[in-house]
């Protein structure tokens, strides 16, 4: 099946099995290996990417539903000027250890900022981040990162930009 869609703003044209997972297309066809496979069942969130402005598990998106979609991966976010600041906040809060879940956690955290327009309680953040499992840090630091990210107005505006593209 021939499909056309965009990844990180770039046009992609591929001939793939319609049942192929977006996750495999990103990693094997496009060599975008920042997106990780954890459980392959939509539970761990390591494969989180943005699809048409919303975060999704790329292990649960079949190629047949990709035509005309707009995908953003961690590599696309990494190329943005605001990424350095985001990464520093994660590092300074000690919210990254082995790093395997990190790309998914970053994508989810950024999506969360776009979904919630006000400052939120820890409970609400915990609910919003529940689709991302981390086996190293425990979740306290990840939740704290999101709270810190929420206070950065400039970041929020930068993030809105990604979701518009």
């Amino acid at each position: 099946m021939k499909i056309q869609f965009t990844v990180n703003g770039q046009n992609v044209l591929l001939d793939v099995n319609p049942k192929r997972r977006l996750l495999d297309i990103l990693r094997d066809e496009l060599q975008l290996i920042g997106t990780k496979e954890g459980c392959g069942k939509g539970e761990c969130g390591a494969c989180t990417v943005f699809m048409d402005g919303r975060r999704v598990n790329s292990c649960l998106v079949p190629a047949l539903q990709l035509p005309k979609s707009k995908i953003w991966t961690i590599e696309g976010v990494e190329a943005l000027p605001i990424f350095q600041e985001i990464a520093e906040i994660f590092v300074n809060q000690g919210a990254v250890q082995c790093g395997f879940c990190f790309p998914g956690v970053v994508m989810s955290a950024l999506a969360y900022l776009q979904e919630e327009h006000n400052y939120s309680t820890k409970d609400r953040i915990a609910h919003g981040m529940a689709g991302n499992i981390c086996r190293c840090t425990g979740y306290t630091k990840i939740l704290e990162v999101v709270q810190v990210l929420e206070t950065h107005k400039k970041l929020r505006i930068g993030i809105e930009e990604i979701f518009k593209r």
Binding site: R55, N57, S108, A130
Partner: peptide, 12 residues
């Protein structure tokens, strides 16, 4: 609906 899966699942 809010209690189903995660936001990633709810989006799809």
């Amino acid at each position: 609906c809010r209690q189903i899966g995660s936001v990633q699942i709810q989006n799809r």
